[in-house]
């Protein structure tokens, strides 16, 4: 039974970690790469660490595994946020399909708005509001 739980947790963890790796290779801009690498990989590593905890089953190992999960869950969002903000401030290119850029115009060297964003001077919030008023659904070409 313990073995079965360990194997399932290992497989789920590996799958999520692999998905994060595929995502970081395939995603079109820094921000999407950052979020896929953080969320999927964090969940994957947490599963693998819990697999180690169930496999060994003694107090010291369980404590260490839980500590890995705790530190990972504390640090991963902070790290992702800082690198995402730094990339934005440095003017990283946004994907052409980006719909909302709420920080537009707040940073001196922010990214150039891609063609999908409205080129007039409405702010992102107004832009979104008018779109919802018109009931407009934006079609995004994912190819």
């Amino acid at each position: 039974m313990t073995e079965l739980i360990t194997v399932v947790l290992l497989f789920v963890g590996t799958l999520f970690t692999l998905l994060a790796a595929i995502g970081i290779l395939r995603m079109p801009d820094v921000f999407m790469r950052m979020q896929v690498a953080t969320k999927a990989a964090t969940l994957g590593v947490a599963c693998v660490a819990l697999a180690a905890a169930t496999h060994f089953g003694d107090l010291a190992t369980i404590a260490r595994s839980l500590l890995i999960v705790l530190f990972l869950y504390l640090t991963a969002p902070v790290a992702a946020h800082t690198i995402g903000r730094a990339a934005y401030v440095a003017g990283a290119k946004l994907w052409e399909g980006t719909i909302i850029d709420e920080l537009r115009g707040r940073h001196r060297k922010g990214p150039q708005p891609p063609s999908s964003l409205a080129t007039n001077d409405t702010t992102a919030a107004e832009d979104r509001q008018s779109r919802t008023d018109r009931g407009e659904q934006r079609q995004v070409d994912l190819s």
């Binding site: 360990t6 994060a20 690498a37 964090t42 660490a49 690198i83 990283a92």
Partner: peptide, 24 residues
């Protein structure tokens, strides 16, 4: 550079997963 930093972060996270599964 931010792309590379994100990649390094992911590699470290995957190394943690690898170490944990190597422990088993």
């Amino acid at each position: 550079l931010p792309d590379r930093v994100v990649a390094i972060d992911l590699i470290a996270t995957q190394a943690v997963a690898m170490l944990a599964s190597s422990a088993i």
